[in-house]
Amino acid sequence: MRNTITSLVLTTVLAVPALASDQIRIGVEGNYPPFSQVAPDGALSGFDIDIADALCDRMQVECTLVQQEWEGMIPALSANRFDMIVASMTITDARRERVDFSDPYYDVPSRFIAAEGDFTSYSPEDLAGQTIIVLRNSPRADFLEENYPDSRILAVDREPAVYLELAAGRGDIAFGSSVVSAEAFLNTPQGEGFVQVGDPISLTRAGEGGVGIAMRKNDDALRERVNAALAEIMADGTYDEMASQYFEFDIMPEAARDALN
């Protein structure tokens, strides 16, 4: 037993990734299906992971994926645990103060989700006095703060927790990603009896919105390489092929799609 522990300790301590010149460490999350998820054997998969792999392939660099909890994502980037974040991070002005973003690589609207029959619309008046569950420190949380002053907001740490809490009955209605809510919840047995409420809501505003790859500020060389690689996979069909494995609709940002046509 002692030997096992010693060898474990050694392998874990010595497993510090070596820093070759053309190596990039990428922060990913693993708790945001179908964009990133962890299988029982610990393997990461999802659209974010595929995008990261495809970008590394185009940039001809060796990549290490570093799994990180959502809350510590930007702090870990700035503390140099990794070089960029591919974790479905929405581009916002607030985040721009701390990190630089690539061009957006996908854009999906947000959605209210509730038990069938509970709500027919989601106006601030309809939801006054109700508890809305949302991801903490997210553009969606900011949107609620701004537009739903009379509702109680339950801000949780991870996106799957939004649906766990809704299913657990801890709030009356949830505000989440239209894609994640469908994939991680509505299309699973646990999501039975829950439906999307009203139309999709786009939080995309001038200069904000869409999901980008975050990098440390002024890491311009890396940002240009990432943008070039991103444009490449979007232009040659790699992007659409990958996306079609997960989504039945187009998730490419409108501006990027327009530029291709």
Partner: peptide, 23 residues
């Protein structure tokens, strides 16, 4: 330590809970 990003037992349990809804 799961809170500072270590992939320990607690973190594994949270991943398994999210995937199976059996926290």
């Amino acid at each position: 330590v799961s809170i500072i990003g270590l992939d320990d037992m607690m973190h594994r349990a949270s991943l398994a809970s999210a995937a199976t809804r059996e926290p």
